[in-house]
């Protein structure tokens, strides 16, 4: 467009230098086609690990860009409709990019083919390519805090629903009780003993039982809300190091505790109802 205007000026003023500049720009465009193309040729992309994310968060998709030959400047990466991110790769080297993708729904987030484009050096041409990296990120349900109507101790059938099990624990001091063989020496109330009240043991309870059950079936509301609530409690219980069991229709996880257990539970929640109990790795 600009070149056309310049050409018109050159013709109308019969100005050789204006012609020359017009031709120079034209030649530059031709040269730029090659440069732009070269900027994309020989670039290898590889998806790196994707950390799981909660609904509403941003999935960080790691990408590894490797240059096999040339330097690659201002490579724009992104999915259709999203903002492109610029990335530089020096010649024969590797650079890592992290692309953000909003996690909108629970389950596997599969952004589809990645658009890789280059406008470098002059921005008048664009070379692009669609790359299928088979990236997928696991999206956990959004944790929503709320009261659990039931945190049932699984093995204590005599206790009614809704009641809180008081299990021997370490959290709260409840009182003293007579010593029984097997009680920890550490818990003996020596002061009481010295006062001649006999061997008494300080008794502690945990607010909830040592083994809790998060049961999908005992919740009400729509599926997503229930999963969100369960998700919240999985995180909550995990943060205090509690042992718990997650019961989903057709699936029981635990009892267990720890990071791995949490991951398994969250994964199960994320993939609940998707038909894939254990998604692809």
């Amino acid at each position: 467009m600009a070149q056309l205007l310049m050409l018109l000026a050159a013709i109308n003023y019969q100005n050789s230098l204006a012609y020359a500049v017009t031709f120079l720009l034209l030649s530059l465009s031709i040269v730029t086609i090659l440069h732009t193309w070269r900027n994309l040729v020989g670039l290898e992309l590889q998806a790196a690990n994707v950390a799981p994310v909660f609904v509403g968060g941003q999935a960080m998709l790691g990408l590894r860009l490797e240059s096999t030959k040339y330097a690659h400047r201002a490579i724009a990466l992104g999915w259709s409709g999203s903002e492109m991110q610029l990335q530089e790769v020096a010649a024969c080297s590797i650079s890592n990019a992290e692309l953000q993708l909003p996690a909108l729904a629970r389950g596997w987030l599969q952004p589809g083919r990645l658009r890789v484009e280059s406008r470098f050096p002059l921005g008048i041409f664009m070379a692009w390519s669609w790359v299928d990296l088979e990236i997928s990120a696991l999206v956990y349900p959004r944790p929503l805090s709320g009261e659990l109507p039931c945190l049932s101790g699984k093995d204590h059938e005599d206790e009614t629903d809704g009641s809180r099990a008081e299990q021997a624990g370490v959290d709260d001091y409840r009182g003293l009780r007579p010593w029984q063989p097997g009680d920890a020496i550490r818990r003996l109330d020596w002061k009481a003993y010295s006062r001649g009240r006999g061997l008494l043991v300080k008794d502690f309870v945990a607010l909830t039982g040592t083994e809790l059950v998060l049961d999908f079936g005992k919740l009400s509301g729509d599926i997503e809300a229930r999963l969100s609530l369960l998700c919240h409690w999985v995180l909550e219980l995990d943060s205090v190091g509690q042992i718990f069991t997650l019961v989903l229709p057709g699936q029981t996880i635990g009892p267990n505790a720890g990071q791995l257990h949490r991951e398994v539970c969250l994964r199960a929640l994320a993939l609940f109802g998707s038909g894939k109990k254990e998604g692809q790795a």
Partner: peptide, 20 residues
């Protein structure tokens, strides 16, 4: 880029028909 474009420019300059 300029250096690379120069030969092309010269060819165009010489052969591109000049209009009135």
């Amino acid at each position: 880029l300029l250096l690379q474009a120069l030969p092309l420019m010269l060819v165009l300059f010489v052969f591109f028909p000049r209009l009135a």
